[in-house]
Write a protein that binds this DNA or RNA. Structure first.
Lengths: 340, 340
DNA sequence: GGCGATTGGGAAAGCGCTTTCCAATACGGT
DNA sequence: ACCGTATTGGAAAGCGCTTTCCCAATCGCC
């Protein structure tokens, strides 16, 4: 059985006693009409032979594929996996296959993947989470993307409006600012921010948004500690903050993962969050909705963002760059009770 | 610029003043030697023209691709996304691209994806989490897989040893059994299991393993409540259990997600986990390591499992089906303190 | 009934690459 | 010098499909 090579369209045509052209037309249905009788004969022959079209050959002949590429920093991170889930569902609806590219945040890998997707003649590319402020790399990516676009490809980005493509803009600034305002409204007066590395756009945007809101509402600037944009980063940052003596009554970690690390650090230090100190995060990661105390955060419609990005990249190409804004919604939970 | 179609190998050859064959050889390096001088000329021409090989054409000519397919039930589920992360990293090392197929647990979609991957002439397919006890569907999948294998493809599964392919067998039974023993060792005497749907293999295996361990150690059979294999399922199941009056001093949820739902249900019902009741899960999902109380669970090396699966599927094909076992490790945390 | 207008099938030309198979040149040994 | 043997470049045959283009057959209409 392993001997007989896969049936090709010619085999089907021969079996059905028609020409190659007719066989192709009968199977694709599309362009021109085939007499029903022949049509059936071809279909029958195809099933009999267990024919499977060769997508690569089709891609060659048609000059277009059925795949879209998705670049994420780390698919194991719930932020990205949720986005990926939404995008994958949408892709399925369109009959598209998703190429998952896990960049690990390495510029070099990102470029390699971009090149690979170009080679594959993938129909579209969605970039999520490669927003760095490293201009050298951004330029490099932009160039690759441009030549990909020139070749007829389509691309969109999530959250990084610095790339020359359509993008789903996440209102990090606004969300964080709104959060700051709500916290001040709850009675908090001295804030600290646990932020990620400086060259990470999401992180700096959220930090800046929060700081702006806080400044406008209280007239003072929040302190901050920077570390990794991860659970452990949050843990370390919070520990350092606590060591230095917590001047703050309220801490904003720029994402939920860091916030959870911070929660753990507080627990270990004997600081009771929700009483001695308030903590808030950003993203509203589903698996983290049950931590205790319930984490105040800014909810992002992550799955929708993935869906949106695909719609954007698949939609009618337009002359000017499209920006699709997505806003977060502050969700107050027990980690930031009203302050008496 | 959008006008000039992408440079082809012929263009490169012409530009370099060599034949198509030479150009191809110069670029791939492999099979035969090309005079260094020509080699350089070709390379120069390629960069000058911004040449990108067409992977589809290469696939056609070579008869093999650079992609592997990964089927998961839900990429947004941290269990799968962690596996996917490990697999993606490994794939990157091998220069392979990953096709992500999100089946949503729907048999029909799973089959569609399998067909699509076959059409793409994917080098290999890894199936994760399609382990159902629905024999009809399993049979169908097995058939598709068999014809894929006959066509020269390679496939491996994760956790479902009922498919006729190499598989990374997760010792769900043993892990759950070990957990049961440890819990009994801690002093617990009456257990209840929160389990998923009956046709979900992981769920039934874990349930059975736990029940076996419990029975052997205490002589009694744990009660159980079935619901969805998710956070909400765990929440509902636990609520029901509490309503019926908790005969149990210890609850095993067959995965961490359900366990977290259970934790939430307890909190809402005023039951203090770690004191009034013990709760344990399975998987040791990273993002859940900071819930309170710390969740006792069975740690699975998820990322390694993904890596292993790819290695398995890429390794030397062997006559008999290979099974690569992976065992979990019980991790005791505060949710199951020693019982005085 | 005759004519142009449809209609539907088939031959064949690619799509962009790899890889035989050949030919030509260079090299070594005696 | 001469012949056999490596080398290395090129022509061309595919890989499996789509799609023009062409042609025969059928249709409709005056």
């Amino acid at each position: 059985m392993a001997g007989e090579r896969a049936a090709t369209l010619s085999d089907v045509a021969r079996e059905a006693g028609v020409s190659l052209a007719t066989a192709s037309r009968a199977l694709n249905g599309s362009d021109r009409v085939v007499r029903p009788e022949l049509q059936e004969r071809v279909l029958a022959a195809a099933t009999k032979l267990g024919y499977t079209p060769n997508a690569n050959a089709q891609a060659m002949a048609r000059g277009s594929t059925e795949t879209v590429g998705l670049l994420v920093k780390d698919i194991a991170d719930p932020y990205f996996s949720t986005i990926a889930g939404g995008l994958a569902d949408e892709a399925e609806k369109h009959g598209l296959l998703v190429m998952l590219c896990n960049t690990g945040g390495q510029a070099e890998r990102e470029q390699k993947f971009l090149a690979a997707l170009r080679r594959q003649r993938s129909r579209a590319i969605v970039l999520a989470g490669s927003d760095t402020t490293d201009m050298g790399h951004t330029r490099e990516v932009a160039d690759l993307l441009t030549s990909y676009l020139d070749g007829g490809g389509r691309a969109a980005a999530i959250s990084q409006p610095r790339l020359p493509v359509d993008t789903v803009v996440i209102d990090n600034h606004g969300g964080a600012k709104a959060l700051a305002e709500r916290l001040v409204g709850l009675g908090y007066r001295r804030a600290a921010v646990l932020t990620g590395p400086e060259d990470l756009l999401v992180s700096t945007e959220r930090h800046a948004g929060f700081a702006e809101g806080w400044l406008e509402a209280t007239g003072s600037k929040p302190a901050y500690v920077a570390d990794e944009f991860s659970r452990d980063g949050g843990h370390r940052a919070m520990s350092r903050l606590l060591e230095d003596g917590p001047e703050a009554d309220c801490v904003f970690a720029v994402n939920d993962l860091m916030a959870v690390g911070a929660l753990a650090a507080c627990r270990q230090a004997g600081v009771e969050v929700g009483k001695d100190l308030a903590v808030a995060g950003f993203d509203d990661i589903a698996t983290l909705r049950d931590v205790t105390p319930g984490l105040t955060t800014v909810r992002l419609p992550l799955a929708d963002i993935g869906r949106l990005a695909l719609e954007l990249v698949l939609g009618e190409p337009s002359a000017e760059l499209r920006k699709q804004s997505v806003h977060g919604e502050v969700v107050l939970r027990e980690s930031t009770p009203p302050r008496s």
